[in-house]
Structure formats: structure tokens, C-alpha cells
């Protein structure tokens, strides 16, 4: 009897060891598969083109082939327009992030802490815009933008993204737990509603603001479809458009292509490794948006 129990115990511990090893191997292989393309981009960006598409691929570059980065920044025509395009992306993403945070915080605060007639309806309307995909309204937006003469301008690039429903929802959820007593105490001390917003609400919502700002910035840094519609000149292009153009050009070599991609990715990867909790937290927050 005792023997049997002992044998069973050994068997299950052996089994669980096998399962344990299997899970480790699986996770490590998956991690290698997922990381490989990013590593490929960085290693290839340091190789002459002849090494990039070569069988078999050598994962460790022979040296620092900096000409790729020079070629990528200089452009095939020597115009250095990539620098201007990076600047455009920075301007658009920054303005959109600031405005999204500000307007979302304002609206979220209004919806969380003030009781007014039609509040539920307003909230539902704002949430309802989540159901309208940008892809479905891009054509009318494009027509309006051209009619207003805003095509090929910062205003045209920025205007459709000044605030979004997810941001309003995020801020409202954050403010709803904020204690009313503090707000009332400030009112008794004679603070105006705007003062309350500026001096109490904004300084106390840094985590929510950081999450929203980072997610918004990242979305704009990626945006391809809208710039593709409204931008015509080389000067107003953003990073994704430059990459598309650079790829399609005749004299592009693969190493320089990867250097251009690496330049676009390095800033956002640094932010990710420094502030990963906001990225991961943002993904998690998205899942709680049904509330």
C-alpha cells in the first residue's frame, strides 16, 4: 500500500518535470521566433546589402557598416528629407497626444464628477463613436479636409485625432473613484471649477495621463492611412510615408532599408523598455473598457 503510493508520487513528479521542461522549451522557442525579426532588422541594418539576403544569414554582423544609416538619412536623392519627415512625425504625434490628454481629461472629469441633464446620453454618444471605424469615414474626412484647403498641412494631419472615445473613457474611469470631499473642500475654499481641474485633478492623474499619452503617441507614430490620403509633398511626409517611398525607390539596398526602419523604431523601443508598465497597463486597460 505504502509502496504503491510512493510509486505513484514518483511517477507524477516525473511527469510534471517533463511538462515543466516542455513549457520552458515552448516559451523560449516562441520568444526566439517573436524576437527574431526585430533582431534581424538591427543586425541587417549594420551589414552591406550583399550580406542581408544571403544564404545562410549570418546573425552577427562582421562590422559596423554605418554607411547604411548615412544612406537612409541622406535618402537616395541626397535631400536629407528623412530628418524633416521625422520632425513631422514628432510634431504631429506630440500635438495629438497633448490635445487628446487635455480634452479627454476635461470631458472625463465632466462626465465623472458633474451631474447634468443628458449626461448619460452624452456618455453613450461618445462611447458610440468607438463603433465608427476610421476606415469607414476616411473618405468624407478627406473630402472635407481638401475642401477646407487643409490637405498637405499639419492642421490636416492633426485635426481628425484631437481626442478619442477611448481616452475619454479611460479618464472618466480614473476620476470616478476620486473622493468628492476633496473637491467640495476646495470649493468651500473658493476655488473655481477650472482651478480644481488644474490644481487638483491634473496633478493627481499622472498614471492615467502617461498611459493615454504614450498610447496616443504610439498610434500617431504608426499612422499610415491618413497621411497617405492627405499628404502630397515630400516635405509634409511622416515616417511611415518615407519608409514606403524609400522601399519603392529603385536604388534602395536592403541594408539601408533596415537602417531606415531601425531609426524609426529606436525611439519607441527605448520608451517601451523604460516605461513598459504603461504599455502593458494600457493593453490591460483596453480589456476593461466594457464597464
Amino acid at each position: 500500500m505504502d509502496h504503491k503510493l510512493e510509486r505513484k508520487k514518483i511517477k507524477t513528479s516525473y511527469q510534471s518535470l517533463v511538462i515543466d521542461i516542455f513549457i520552458w522549451v515552448f516559451l523560449i522557442f516562441a520568444a526566439l521566433f517573436i524576437l527574431a525579426p526585430t533582431i534581424f532588422m538591427f543586425t541587417a541594418s549594420l551589414m552591406p546589402a550583399s550580406d542581408v539576403v544571403k544564404m545562410p544569414y549570418r546573425w552577427i554582423p562582421g562590422g559596423f557598416y554605418w554607411q547604411n544609416y548615412w544612406q537612409g538619412i541622406r535618402g537616395n536623392d541626397g535631400s536629407f528629407i528623412y530628418i524633416r519627415n521625422i520632425l513631422n512625425s514628432l510634431i504631429v504625434a506630440t500635438v495629438v497626444s497633448v490635445s487628446t490628454v487635455f480634452l479627454s481629461a476635461l470631458a472625463g472629469f465632466g462626465l465623472a464628477k458633474y451631474y447634468f441633464k443628458g449626461r448619460a446620453l452624452v456618455f453613450m454618444m461618445i462611447m458610440g463613436t468607438m463603433m465608427i471605424p476610421f476606415e469607414a469615414i476616411m473618405i468624407p474626412l478627406y473630402l472635407v479636409t481638401t475642401k477646407l484647403g487643409l490637405q498637405d498641412s499639419y492642421a490636416g494631419l492633426i485635426a481628425p485625432f484631437l481626442v478619442n472615445a477611448f481616452g475619454v473613457f479611460l479618464m472618466r474611469q480614473y476620476f470616478i473613484t476620486f473622493p468628492d470631499e476633496i473637491l467640495d473642500a476646495a470649493r468651500i475654499d473658493g476655488a473655481s471649477e477650472l482651478m480644481i481641474f488644474k490644481t487638483i485633478i491634473l496633478p493627481n492623474s499622472v498614471p492615467a495621463i502617461a498611459t493615454l499619452a504614450i498610447l496616443t503617441f504610439k498610434a500617431q507614430w504608426d499612422n499610415l492611412l491618413w497621411p497617405l490620403l492627405v499628404v502630397q509633398s515630400e516635405e509634409m511626409k511622416t515616417i511611415p510615408l518615407y519608409i514606403v517611398k524609400f522601399m519603392a525607390e529603385k536604388h534602395t539596398d536592403e541594408g539601408a532599408m533596415m537602417a531606415v526602419a531601425a531609426i524609426a523604431s529606436i525611439p519607441i523601443l527605448i520608451v517601451f523598455f523604460r516605461l513598459s508598465k504603461y504599455f502593458l497597463g494600457g493593453a490591460a486597460l483596453y480589456s476593461s473598457r466594457k464597464g
Binding site: 542581408v52 515616417i239 526602419a261 517601451f272 513598459s276
Partner: peptide, 20 residues
């Protein structure tokens, strides 16, 4: 972090890498 990292790259960059 390793599994999430590709989501940080822009979709244009992702497509360009995979094209190669």
C-alpha cells in the same frame, strides 16, 4: 515584454522587415 515587443514597432516597419 518579449512577446509584446513587436506590437511596439509600427506596422510599416513590421511589413518592411517581413518583406525581406
Amino acid at each position: 515584454m518579449a512577446y509584446y515587443s513587436p506590437a511596439v514597432l509600427s506596422s510599416v516597419v513590421a511589413a518592411v522587415i517581413w518583406l525581406l
